[in-house]
Write a protein that binds this DNA or RNA. Structure first.
Lengths: 335, 335
DNA sequence: TTGTAAGCGTTATCAG
DNA sequence: CTGATAACGCTTACAA
C-alpha cells in the first residue's frame, strides 16, 4: 500500500504538504498540488480512513440500526425500500453506511457502544423496539440520531404520516358513496394507535357513525388474521360495504374469504389496503391503497442526520412528516 | 472518551498491560486482568476500532456490494432476504457490514478503492453488473471476495442451484401426469441460460418432446410480459396443460390472463412459479413454486468469506451450490 | 508477569 | 507556500 510518505519522497516534499495538497488546501501552490495529485494517482495511492478518522474524529460513516421487525427473515418491502434509499442518499453525500448491532466481535454490547466503537458520525434507527433500554440509551446520548416512525422526546424523527393516510382513505371511500365502512387494524403499536385514532377522527368529521362491530383487530402482514376478521364482518346482519385492511398483504387474507362467500370485488364489496407495495399494483383489480413514500422517508432521515452532524450546535430536534398518497385502484365501487 | 491510558493510570499499570488484559492475553495474571477489566467497565471504556485497525490491519468489517438490480427502488425479496442473512451471519461471527459504493466522499472511485479505503477484510458481492470492469477489478484483486449467483474464474461464488430447481419442477409436473409443459423464461442472463438449458435437459431425460411454441420469453418480475406470453400459449390449438413462470410475481400476470379466459387454476390449467417469495405462500390456491434458499445463500457467502479471510494461504476458490426446494402448493393438478 | 517504546497513516499546529 | 513534529489510540516486539 502506498502512503503519503511515499508520495512525499517521490515528489521531494514533506508529508504535511502532500496531506494538504491531497485535501485541496489553499495553502499549497497550484503547481505543487498538481504534481502531488498526479503522482498520487500514478502510484495508486488510496487514503486510509482509519488513520484519518483516528486523527480527525470524523468517519463519514453512518450507523444503520435495523432490527428485523418480524425476527424471522420475512422481509417488509417498506423497510427494504427505506434501507435502499438511505444507502443511496448517504452515498450521494459521501457517507458510508454500516449496520450497527449490539455485538462487537462476538461479545454483546449496547448499540451505542457499537456505534462509538466504529466511530459513526451518527445513527439512523430504521426499525427497532423503541421500548428497549438500549435504544433509549442510544437516542438519548450525544450521538446524533434520527428515528423513523417513532418520536422520542426532543429528538429528531421522520414519520410516515399515518394520520393523513387514514384520513384520506376514509374521505375517499366516503366520497365514493360508502357509509358502512369497516376497519381492520394491526397489532398494538404507536403506528396502529395513530391510525385507529385517525380513523375515528375522520369518521367523526364526516358525521359517520361506525358501529363497534365494524372495527376489528388483526395482525400486520398475516393474511390469516385479516381473513378471520373479514369473515366476521361478512357474517354481520348489516354488512359493511367497504373494508379497510391493515396492509396490502393482509388484504390477501380478506380476498380469499370474500371469494369464498362468492362475492366479487368491487361489485359486491369494496376494499382498501395500506402501504402500496409492488403487489398492490400488479393485482387485478388493482388495489386501492395508501402508498407510503418510503423512498422519501429514507432520504429525509439521512438528510436530517447529516444536518445534525454538521451543525451540532444549531440543529434543532424536529419531527418531519412524510406524506404518502392514495393509489386509486379499482377496488372501491362508486355507490 | 476514556482510553487505555486512563485505565492504565487508574490501575497503576502500563498501557501495554491494559491492552493485553483487555484482549484476554494469557500473559497477564488473572488478578491484574480482573482489576483492569472491572475498571475499564466502570470507567465506561469503549475501544476505538480505527486505532485498532490502523495498527493491526484488520477491521472485522465486511464490504457489501449491492447494486440495486432494478435501478429503481423496486425491491426484490430474494435480495433483501440475502442482505438480512448476511447481516445476521456477519454479526454472529463478530464482523460488521458496510455498504461499498463507487464513491468516496462524493468523488467517484472504484469499488476496490472504496473497500481498501475502508479497510474491509473482504467483500461480498450480492448483486451487480458482473461485466462491469470495476467489478472484475475487485474480484480479481487480492481482496477476499465472494460473489453470489455468478462464477468468476478461479474465484469463490455461491450459487442458487438453478439447474436443480428447474429439473425438480419439470420432474414434479411430469409425475403429476402432465406432458404438455410450457416454459416462460426471463430476460437473458447467466441465470436464465442455466434455467433454459436445464428445462431442456430435464425434458430430454424424460423423453418429453416440447414444441417450440411452448417456450416463450418474458421478463422477470414484470407480470405484464408473462401475461402476454400466457395469452399466446392459451391461444394455441394444442394448449399446454401446465405453465412454468419465470418467477412468482410474473405468475400474477399469467393469472389475470387465465382468469380472463374463464379458466380456473388448477382445474383447467396448472401453473408453477419460481422463487418462493412470501406472496406465493399467501395466494389461494397456494402457488407451487421452487423456493430459493436465500437465507442459506447469504449465510454461506459470509461463512466462506470469513474462511477466506482467516486462511488466505490455504483457502481454495470454490463454487457452492445452494439447493432450494419445491413448495408444493395447489396449482398443479394430478392428471 | 509487566513495562518500554516504536509505529500504524494521517492531520494539525506552529515555525520558517 | 512549505516543513518539522506531535498527536490520534492502540498493539506488539522486546526488554526487564
Amino acid at each position: 500500500m502506498v502512503k503519503i510518505k511515499d508520495i512525499a519522497a517521490r515528489c521531494k516534499v514533506s508529508v504535511a504538504t502532500v496531506s494538504k495538497a491531497l485535501n485541496g488546501s489553499s495553502e499549497i501552490s497550484k503547481k505543487t498540488t498538481d504534481k502531488i495529485v498526479k503522482t498520487a494517482s500514478e502510484m495508486g495511492y488510496i487514503a486510509n480512513s482509519n488513520a484519518r478518522s483516528l486523527k480527525t474524529n470524523r468517519s463519514y460513516n453512518l450507523g444503520l440500526l435495523y432490527v428485523d421487525p418480524s425476527q424471522s427473515g420475512l422481509e417488509h418491502e417498506y423497510f427494504s425500500t427505506i434501507l435502499n434509499s438511505i444507502k443511496a442518499e448517504a452515498e450521494h453525500f459521501g457517507f458510508d453506511v454500516t449496520f450497527i448491532s449490539n455485538k462487537i466481535g462476538g461479545k454483546t454490547n449496547s448499540y451505542l457502544t457499537h456505534a462509538r466503537y466504529r466511530g459513526c458520525d451518527g445513527v439512523v434507527v430504521v426499525s427497532a423496539d423503541f421500548k428497549d433500554p438500549e435504544i433509549i440509551e442510544l437516542v438519548e446520548s450525544n450521538m446524533p440520531t434520527v428515528t423513523i416512525d417513532h418520536v422520542f422526546n426532543n429528538r429528531t424523527s421522520i414519520m410516515s404520516d399515518n394520520n393523513r393516510g387514514l384520513g384520506e382513505i376514509v374521505k375517499y371511500i366516503y366520497e365514493k358513496g360508502h357509509r358502512k365502512i369497516a376497519f381492520i387494524y394491526g397489532e398494538d403499536t404507536t403506528v396502529t394507535q395513530q391510525r385507529v385514532a385517525s380513523f375515528h377522527q375522520a369518521c367523526e368529521s364526516l358525521n359517520l357513525e361506525i358501529p363497534e362491530a365494524y372495527i376489528k383487530q388483526a395482525y400486520y402482514h398475516i393474511p390469516k388474521y385479516s381473513g378471520i376478521a373479514t369473515r366476521e364482518l361478512l357474517a354481520l346482519d348489516d354488512r359493511p360495504t367497504c373494508i379497510i385492511f391493515p396492509d396490502d398483504y393482509s388484504y390477501m387474507g380478506g380476498l380469499t374469504e370474500i371469494e369464498k362467500h362468492g362475492l366479487k370485488i368491487p361489485e359486491d364489496i369494496s376494499v382498501v389496503g395500506y402501504d402500496g407495495i409492488y403487489l398492490s399494483r400488479i393485482l387485478r383489480p388493482m388495489l386501492t391503497t395508501y402508498v407510503q413514500d418510503s423512498k422519501e422517508i429514507g432520504k429525509t432521515s439521512v438528510l436530517k442526520l447529516i444536518e445534525m452532524i454538521e451543525n451540532p450546535k444549531t440543529f434543532m430536534a424536529q419531527q418531519v412528516f412524510i406524506n404518502g398518497h392514495l393509489q386509486e385502484g379499482q377496488t372501491v365501487k362508486q355507490i
